[in-house]
């Protein structure tokens, strides 16, 4: 199985590459629109700010290819900032338009909890088949989505109130946590995403 990882030069992708290699996948780093369209499995990783993440997608001319791929429901996994970029906007970068695949805006954690959220927190599965029974996952984030968009399955975590840990619509999966750093459970989620039957439309 070949997994292509969108590498815009900003995010560190070594851990994502290693995680898929452990699942016996071939991995390739890609950064052009043609590859975004053609990849059998595509990972949209991402660390950094909402603004810098969108700027690199715009610079490389990837916005339309990603939007089409996701609306077609082709196998795509968005990680951390990757999930956030699917939304319309974020409090982090006012005025910056996201990929807008999801009708949602990210907000900061309330000041009742330390931000960023660093570490392992419990993810409970509401109705996202890739998540199985739920488990502990590793987070490093300051912004989060607090409502599940229509038509998506979801998993939830508590930190200053409930927030969206994961979204799934068929073969499109978006994780606010880092499945590549979430131990055996994270690896199971990646394997489920690669497996047609396990990610059956919810």
């Amino acid at each position: 199985m070949e997994v292509n990882i969108l590498s815009t030069g900003v995010a560190n992708v070594a851990s994502v590459v290693a995680a898929f290699k452990r699942l016996n996948c071939k991995t390739k780093l890609i950064s052009d629109a043609h590859a975004v369209t053609e990849s059998p499995f595509l990972v949209l990783p991402g660390v950094g700010s909402f603004q810098s993440g969108m700027a690199s997608l715009v610079d490389k001319g990837l916005v339309d290819a990603l939007r089409v791929r996701i609306s077609d429901g082709r196998p795509t996994l968005a990680i951390c900032l990757g999930l956030q970029l699917l939304a319309e906007a974020s409090e982090e970068s006012p005025g910056v338009r996201g990929l807008s695949c999801i009708a949602s805006t990210l907000t900061a954690f309330p000041n009742t909890v330390a931000s960023p959220q660093f570490g392992w927190n419990w993810l409970s599965n509401e109705n996202a088949p890739v998540l199985g029974d739920g488990g502990y996952v590793y987070y490093a984030n300051s912004y989060r989505m607090t409502e599940c968009p229509d038509g998506w399955g979801s998993g939830w975590t508590e930190y200053g109130g409930p927030f969206v840990g994961c979204l799934q619509k068929g073969a499109v999966v978006a994780c606010q946590f880092h499945p590549e750093l979430s131990g055996e459970y994270g690896s199971t989620i990646l394997a489920n995403w690669l497996n047609d039957e396990r990610r059956a439309t919810c």
Partner: peptide, 9 residues
């Protein structure tokens, strides 16, 4: 280490 490690380093 990365090749075998599935937690943050």
């Amino acid at each position: 280490i990365r090749a075998v490690l599935d937690i943050p380093l």
